[in-house]
Structure formats: C-alpha cells, structure tokens
Computed example of a mutant assay.
Amino acid sequence: MSVALVCMSHSPLLEYADPPADVTAAVDAAFDQARAFVRDYDPTLVVPFAPDHYNGFFYDLMPPFCIGYEALGVGDYGSAEGPLDVPTAVAERLAEWVAERDLDIAISRRMEVDHGAIQPLEILFNGIDTVPAIPVFINGVAKPFVKMARVRKLGEAIGSFLATLDDERVLVIGSGGLSHDPPVPQWATADDAQRALLLNGRHPTAAARDARQHNVINAGKAFAAGTATIRDLNPEWDQALMEVFTSGDLTPIDAMSAAQMAEDAGNSAHEVRTWVAAFAALGASGPYTVTSSFYRPIREYIAGFGVMTARTAR
C-alpha cells in the first residue's frame, strides 16, 4: 500500500474566462506537473474529497460528510456527465470503518457530483471512469459547518482505512478553495426563488442551468474588472494555509472557526476542508513530503488558485 496526494483549486470558469496569457500558462504548467506526478505514481484507486455547489446536495438534507457507494456527474459547466467507476464493496467497508471510529458518516448509493469532484478527475485522468474512485463529499457551502478538527479526524480515519489496502496505490484528491467568494446564495439573505434552489434544485432544465451559470460567468468578468461586490481574494491567508499543509502538522487548523474563515477568505473558503481531509488522510500513513506547490491569485477564476502534490515516505 502507498498513498499520494494532489490538492487543487477548481473553478467553473476554467473554460469560460480569459486570464492573461502568462497566468494561463502558469496554471497549465501546474496541471502538467500534477499530471506527470499522477502518471508516475500510477494509482489503482482514487479518493476525491470534494464539495458540492447545490447540484447534488441541498438543504432538504445536508450532511457534513458523505461517502458515495455509486456516483455520477451532473454535467454542470460542461463537465462530464455519467457514472464514475466506484468500487462499491470497498466504499461500503470504508463507511463502516469510519463509523466505527466515532465519526457520523452519511452514505449515498446514488451520489450526484458536480464540477467540484469531476474537474480534477478530468484534468488528471482525462476522464471520470478511467480509474476506480470513491468520492467523499465534504460540505463547504451550507451552514452550519462542523469544526475543522472534525474534518481532520475524518481524513485521518479514512487514511487509516486506506493503510489496510495492501495491494493498492491510492491517490487522495482535495478539490476546492482557496480564498474565494463567488455569488453562491446564502440562505439568510436569499430570496424565495434562491431558497427554492438551495432547498432542492436537482435536475434543473437546460435553460435554468444556463441562466445560473451565466450569472457566475458574468460575476467572474466583473470581479476581474474590479466592479464586483464580492469579497476579495486573500493571498496571505492562502499561502499561510499551504505552509501548514507543507509542515505536516495539521493541528493548527483545529483553531480555525467557520465565521473567521468566511470573514478572512470568503464564504467559499470552506472548500479548503477538502484539502484538510486529504492531507490528514495522507498523513495517517506516516510522514509525507510535498513534491510541488503552485499558487496564484486569479481574479478571472474568482479564486486563490493552488495546486500541491505530495507523497508519503513509504
């Protein structure tokens, strides 16, 4: 058994925005480096930790964590639709393992995942079913949020299970963040139409999905032009967090509060919970080394954009 990691920001605007050429080249180079890392490692199993953006999980029932026994992409922002190759028997054992370690875990036998889970698989593997994958949803948009220590413990529990898979080369993926505050409605300030979406917006019409996506695309253009009212990016916050991940000691993250995270880095900065879980899962197998680290604040993507790769010493 061995474990490796790729953590990366995602953005629905990757294919819809036009950053300066040097920024695009830098992001492409970081993706190429991550792809080479994954090619060299040649994983036999992938565990993507990902949020959702009210495409698969809604306020009619919003768990803090969920393990997918089966999963399919919903196809938002041009991402791939259809089933992932989920090894259901292994996913069932994983959920039982986590539950036995005093962590409440939801399960789904038909998890619907959006670009948050799909984009890394397409970037790293050029498809969503080319390697077996067990998706793990971590709520990163919908209040209330569990404590960060709980997210770290979830990652450690999953990592301890992965350590029992003697014949597997496991790649854990953390998808999301870093600082960003896209125009995702908040329940407390949402109007009736927005609340209907947040409560249960499953399977929208093509026109409804297109309208919602164009709202984000237009927000990205306004943010890049400096005319949007959303919270600014916070490169200092982003890079300080990446330094914690590099250190191998994740316990300082336990002190981070949900309210302060939103204040410092935007409402969607909670997506970094996926990075916390992924690094905790990696660390459960022993000391690790970060092999590459990239960061740029990219207004066109409404994201503090980071990519990190790491491996255990085993």
Rank of each mutant, 00 (worst) to 15 (best):
R109T: 09
K153N: 11
A258D: 15
G56M: 10
Q213E: 15
F49E: 00
A21V: 14
G306D: 12
V86G: 00
A225P: 13
A208N: 03
E236C: 03
T246E: 15
I134H: 01
E243H: 12
V244H: 08
A310R: 01
M1K: 10
L162R: 04
M242G: 08
T229W: 10
T229G: 11
Q119E: 15
A284Y: 02
A190R: 04
Q194D: 08
A262L: 01
R109C: 07
A30H: 04
L178I: 07
I123C: 09
W97E: 04
Y69I: 06
V307A: 06
D264V: 06
G177H: 07
D114H: 08
S175A: 13
D104N: 06
L72Q: 12
L199M: 13
V151Q: 00
K147G: 12
T246Y: 02
R311P: 00
A21G: 01
M148P: 00
F125L: 15
E271V: 10
G304Y: 11
V170T: 14
I253R: 02
A17F: 14
V276S: 05
G116H: 01
P182A: 13
A106I: 01
A278W: 00
V98D: 05
I105F: 02
S160Y: 08
L124H: 11
D76P: 04
L154M: 10
G174H: 05
G176Y: 13
A80Y: 01
T205Y: 01
A222P: 03
F125V: 09
G56Q: 13
A26I: 08
R296W: 05
Q194H: 02
R311Q: 08
A303F: 07
T227E: 15
H180C: 10
N126I: 00
G283Q: 00
D18P: 03
D85G: 07
P183E: 04
C7G: 08
R273S: 05
P297T: 09
L197Q: 06
A133C: 11
I118F: 01
M256T: 14
D264E: 15
I302A: 11
E243V: 05
L84R: 10
K143G: 01
D85Q: 15
P297D: 13
A255R: 15
P43Y: 12
K143A: 14
